[in-house]
Simulated assay, not measured.
Amino acid sequence: MTEKNNSSSYLVSLLFAVVVWGAWLVYTYPDSWSVIQNYWQVSVTMIFGSIIAGATSEGGGAIAFPVFTKMLQISPADAKVFSLAIQSVGMVAASVAIIMMRVQVLWRVIIWVSLGGVFGLFVGSVLLTPVLASDSVRMLFTVMAVSLAFTLIRLSTGFRLNHRSMPEINLRETGLLLVVGIVGGTISGSVGSGIDMICFSVLVLLFRISESIATPTSVILMAINSVLGVLLHIYFF
């Protein structure tokens, strides 16, 4: 059954990729090749972004945003929207594979953090982005990246992760997860990613959830947040 689920998930992921590539070709036709020539740096960047996204809890935006803003001189606002858009494709495809392969995730965490993330996403996109200076946005991303690095270093030093499920979620845990969602959503609304990193750090450091469960949970969470972020920018900006 597991092999069958794996094969099905691979086929669905391949079909998803073909649909995305086909839609891109139709959208850029007849200038598809010239688009690649003019923006090859973006494709190269996302090769590494997809590798990082596939190996960690981070989305491809974690690579795209710093490269775009610090090397390619793209505005933080445009880099943020790109990050959300690219993750709404890649992270959704990964989420479909996770669900089809029946990988264990924490659905209660996803639900509560996502609810907070909706509010935070609105705050970051609508209220903070117009008033934050570009340097402040870059600094915000750097702080977030350093926090994730601290988490990974902590894990590599033998930090014990011995829980494969959340404890009973009472009012305190619910409030904490909502706050995580609001903070993570606000950061995602400002730099294009963040709710996945914040949630991952809280799960492994505070609740001591196994990394193998925290990672797919964060992936699905970022997929939901990215899709909502893209819809927010399509219909309200």
Rank of each mutant, 00 (worst) to 15 (best):
H163C: 05
L25Y: 10
M101N: 10
M197K: 11
G22Y: 10
V12F: 09
T151G: 04
D31A: 07
N170K: 13
L106T: 00
Q104C: 06
L206A: 04
R154V: 09
M91W: 14
P76T: 08
S7P: 04
R102N: 14
G124V: 10
L121A: 07
M166G: 06
M1V: 06
L152S: 03
S136N: 14
V12W: 04
G185S: 11
V109W: 02
S210I: 00
F82I: 15
G175P: 00
F237C: 00
V118N: 02
V89F: 15
G90R: 10
F236T: 05
I86E: 07
I74V: 11
S8E: 13
M101I: 06
L161P: 02
T45Y: 10
I99D: 01
S114P: 04
V118E: 08
Y235H: 03
V18L: 15
G60E: 10
I182C: 03
L231G: 01
V113K: 00
R160P: 00
F150N: 00
I51C: 05
L15A: 11
I224H: 07
S226R: 12
M139C: 10
L177P: 01
S7I: 07
G116W: 00
A64T: 11
W21F: 12
H233A: 01
I234H: 10
A77D: 14
